[in-house]
Computed example of a mutant assay.
Amino acid sequence: MAELCVCSVLVTGANRGLGLGLVQHFLRLPNPPQWIFATCRDPNGQRAQELQTLASKHPNLVIIGLEVANPASIKAAAAKVGEHLGGSGLNLLINNAGIVKPNSLDNETPEDMIQVYTTNTVGPLLMGQVFLPLLKKAAQGSPGSELSCSKAAIINMSSIGGSIASSYGWELMQITSYRCSKAALNMLSRCQSLAYKEHGILCVALHPGWVQTDMGSCAGHTPPVTVDDSVQGMLKVLSSLSEKDTGAFLDWEGNVLPW
């Protein structure tokens, strides 16, 4: 399997968990991206220290403040990314930032539902809209017509919890607002794949597995998949994606998941 090769990548929610793992693995690639944009809500805060340390050692890593639930923040981040890229475009947008409220169905509230939906679904919608010009520029600057992550792609970090056909994990975690937000994200991914295909942009919903992160452990159980294993698997999947996969719902091992 060929290594993933992209000139530029942006990862949201990059200060911990899967986002940080993705940044670390991109830096370790034999041919790392020329630009890695790692975004988080508070780049100078305590929770971004590991990211700051990495950036001090890798000039191709740029940390940018970004709140995915805030349209003005997204526009400001896109402007900064555009400045760094100069005349080039953004090859790979990974919408990884997400939140969960570990409520049972009986305890779900409108406030929590709206907050989770805003971050997990509306955020990736806005990111796709605002970064579309940079993604289109990358697609136009890439030879060939075949879709791929090396050309231009949006990867939405979804979850098997958003599958309507599967009840995976219900006994352990009802997390209704999270499940609803990811089901909606899956449909957004399909809509993006249909709307952006003409621009040469591939769009996929990707389930990273049940991973050993703060979010994955929120129900008090130890998840079976490590961050390293998940990220290695996802990068392998990303390297193999082509036109036939756009609009798909896949997991970190490349399996097609039921909608």
Rank of each mutant, 00 (worst) to 15 (best):
R179N: 07
S181E: 11
A152R: 00
L147S: 02
S142Y: 15
S145K: 12
A184N: 09
L172I: 11
S177T: 03
G162Q: 01
G162N: 07
M157I: 15
P143M: 04
G169C: 12
C149T: 14
G128H: 03
F131G: 04
G169R: 08
I154N: 04
S145M: 13
P133D: 02
L172C: 08
L185Q: 06
S142Q: 14
N186K: 09
S177M: 02
S145I: 11
Y168M: 08
M173N: 07
Q140A: 15
Y168Q: 12
S158T: 03
L132W: 08
G144P: 02
N156C: 12
A152H: 02
S177P: 06
I154C: 03
K151P: 06
Y178L: 12
K151Q: 13
I155W: 03
S167W: 08
S158Y: 05
A153I: 07
G169H: 09
S177A: 15
S166T: 00
S159M: 07
S142T: 15
I164W: 06
P124V: 11
M173T: 06
A138E: 05
Y168W: 15
I155C: 03
V130A: 11
S181P: 07
S159P: 05
A138P: 09
Y178D: 10
E146Y: 10
L185V: 09
G144L: 10
I164V: 15
S142C: 14
S148A: 10
N156R: 04
I154M: 03
S159H: 00
E146G: 07
S158R: 01
A183C: 09
A138H: 07
N156D: 06
G144M: 02
A184P: 00
S158E: 00
K151D: 07
G141Y: 05
V130C: 04
K182P: 02
S159N: 08
S150V: 13
S177C: 04
K137R: 14
Q174Y: 05
N186E: 08
Q174I: 10
M127R: 01
Q129V: 04
K151L: 13
S181K: 12
L126R: 13
K137P: 01
R179K: 13
A152N: 01
L125H: 13
A138V: 11
S159T: 05
S166A: 10
M157C: 04
L172P: 02
G144Q: 06
L132C: 00
S145Q: 14
K137C: 04
F131T: 01
E171D: 15
Q129W: 00
K182I: 09
T176H: 13
M157Q: 01
